[in-house]
Amino acid sequence: MADFHIRQVYLTTANEVVNYVMGARKELFPMLDHERLPKDLAKFEATYIDQEIGFFLEARDHADRLIGVLGLVAYDHRFSFLSFSAGCVAEVVRLYIDPSHRRRGLAANMVDKLISYARHQKIHTLYLHTHPFLTGAYDFWLKMGFETVAEREHSGFDTIHMQRKL
């Protein structure tokens, strides 16, 4: 039996989720400005709740503590060197699992739920990017069926761009 449960985020837990994501962001990217919320988090409701493709998951342990997050947004085509085939493309964002709950299948379960949602929404391609310094991230996404489509430096970070056709 899993020691966690996964559910979609609604307004009732949105503020807690945003604070959790910001804590994870500070841990993973200490070099970034953390005084201002990124656009998607500042407009969480409009981005993840009100949009047809917007979707955000939270994972909680048996004591209802937040232990993981994962989001999906419509891809905004901001990387001109990427070319996706026709159809709806969505971007997988903000995967973070509390270190004490890693290697238990939680992230894979969250990705499975996100993929089910994406298929239901008639999304054809999932896009994401990751960075080599995020230990284990690249290998995890490969195991989840993603493939590398480009490797480039972006905003001072070596960046691996990946996709998964649905």
Rank of each mutant, 00 (worst) to 15 (best):
L126Q: 01
F133R: 02
P30G: 04
F79S: 02
L11E: 15
G156H: 06
Y117L: 12
S116Q: 13
K26F: 09
F140H: 08
A118I: 02
L37H: 08
G71H: 03
V111T: 14
E27F: 14
M31H: 15
L166D: 06
R103W: 09
P30F: 08
E45T: 05
S85R: 15
R102T: 03
H5C: 12
A118M: 02
W141E: 05
D76I: 04
S116W: 12
P132E: 08
E58M: 11
H120E: 14
D139W: 08
D158V: 14
L57R: 02
T13K: 12
F29S: 09
W141I: 01
V21G: 05
P30K: 03
A42G: 03
Y75N: 01
N15P: 00
V18M: 09
L66N: 02
K43Y: 14
F84E: 05
R119I: 07
R104H: 12
R78K: 09
A90T: 05
H77C: 09
Y10L: 14
Y138F: 06
F79T: 04
L66H: 09
M162A: 12
D61R: 06
I123P: 02
L66R: 10
H120A: 05
F55P: 00
Q8Y: 10
H120D: 15
G71A: 08
F4G: 00
A118Y: 09
G105V: 10
T148N: 07
L166V: 02
I67C: 04
L82R: 00
T12G: 00
H77E: 11
A14S: 10
K113A: 10
I6M: 08
L126I: 09
T130R: 00
F84L: 09
V111Y: 00
F146D: 03
S155L: 13
H161V: 10
H62D: 13
V69P: 00
F44H: 06
D40Q: 06
R36D: 10
L142T: 13
G145W: 03
A2S: 11
F84S: 06
D33E: 11
F81D: 01
F55S: 01
D3P: 07
S83H: 13
I67A: 01
H77M: 13
H154I: 04
L11P: 11
P132C: 13
R36M: 15
F140R: 05
F146Y: 03
H101T: 05
E45R: 13
V21S: 12
H101I: 00
R36L: 15
S100I: 12
G71D: 12
